[in-house]
């Protein structure tokens, strides 16, 4: 009985901060008015939901969310696997540990802080553009040489900085790249842990058989990593509606809404416009689809790893 009493504060916490907001989702089916409160606001049925699904901005946000998640999944997911494989080949312990310590660092900083740094580094007179200018310079020099050698008339590249933060395509590039920057060290650790579990005898016997490093990687290392890779991939797939609110909110601007506005930023914006019902409907849409995805993915992972690696 004492045990149940101990649980009471925690249960109260979950009721107040998790379950009451879940009940609050009925706002999505009401025409919420601040002065009337949740209970007395008139019912609106599915009007909010249908308004939402027809809203151009919401559809755009949904598409962007999926596109950004997919880009992260295809590039951001491979990066830590590669990093772990390369790190694993380094036999000098102090060097390996130093590299790990450095690439792990950005993980501990907020996106406010990283965002500030990124805005500076990718600004039109920041170091990224400086490097770009140097490359252009080299290209133009080569073109000049070619022109004078062969008498051709190839045009030189114009010197204009890349607008990383205001060009809709470059913005996505920055998003994915800096996403990798922040996360790659952290994600690589999981793979490194799996790699550390491979018995040395396996490699030794492969060596005796004359298999080189490359073959050892293909036939020993990768197969050992595979369950971890598949599991993490599926779990990331379950998070597809989370395209990285913190990062995007601190980097984007109205010019790139077209490609960078995601569900979370959209919800925040309509909330700030005081359209509570529509914002709740959008949030609910995300919560429900997200839940279905996570439950499904967890089932698949449990099946695939025979109940070993699922979330629950």
């Amino acid at each position: 009985m004492q045990l149940v009493w101990m649980l009471v504060p925690v249960l109260l916490f979950f009721i107040i901060f998790s379950y009451i907001p879940m009940c609050g989702l009925i706002i999505a089916f009401k025409d919420y008015r601040m002065d009337l409160g949740i209970i007395h606001s008139p019912w609106a049925g599915l009007a909010n939901l249908s308004e939402l699904l027809q809203a151009f901005e919401f559809r755009k946000a949904l598409t962007n969310t999926i596109i950004i998640s997919m880009l992260r999944l295809s590039f951001g997911f491979v990066a830590p696997v590669l990093l772990a494989l390369l790190l694993n080949e380094i036999r000098v312990t102090w060097y390996k540990r130093t590299i790990q310590t450095i690439v792990y660092l950005p993980y501990f900083f907020s996106w406010v802080l990283l965002g500030g740094i990124i805005l500076t580094v990718f600004s039109s007179n920041g170091p990224m553009n400086l490097v770009y200018m140097l490359l252009l310079d080299i290209c133009n020099f080569c073109l000049g040489q070619i022109n004078s050698l062969f008498g051709t008339n190839l045009h030189h590249f114009a010197f204009s900085p890349i607008q990383f933060m205001t060009n809709r395509h470059w913005f996505l590039f920055v998003l994915i790249l800096t996403g990798i920057w922040q996360e790659v060290g952290y994600s690589a650790i999981i793979y490194l842990a799996a790699l550390a579990g491979i018995p040395v005898e396996l490699y030794e016997s492969a060596n005796v058989d004359g298999a080189g490093r490359w073959h050892q990687t293909i036939h020993i290392t990768l197969p050992v990593l595979m369950p971890t890779i598949v599991t993490l991939f599926l779990l990331r797939l379950g998070q597809i509606l989370n395209a990285g609110f913190d990062q995007i909110y601190n980097l984007y601007n109205p010019i790139v809404y077209d490609s960078a506005d995601i569900i979370d930023t959209y919800v925040l914006r309509i909330l700030q416009n005081m359209d509570f019902s529509l914002a709740t409907a959008a949030g609910m849409f995300k919560s429900i689809i997200g839940m279905i995805l996570i439950v499904t993915v967890n089932m698949i992972v449990n099946k695939y790893t025979k109940g070993e690696k699922g979330l629950w």
Binding site: F14, S18, I20, G24, S287
Partner: peptide, 28 residues
């Protein structure tokens, strides 16, 4: 041996996979 342990576990687990979202939390 905690009584109703399964129910309490479920009660906690549900909060992990479903949330009310921003607006209800803001109003709360």
């Amino acid at each position: 041996y905690l009584p109703y342990r399964k129910c309490f576990m479920l009660f906690v687990l549900i909060t992990m996979i479903f949330s009310g979202g921003l607006v209800p939390i803001y109003l709360l």
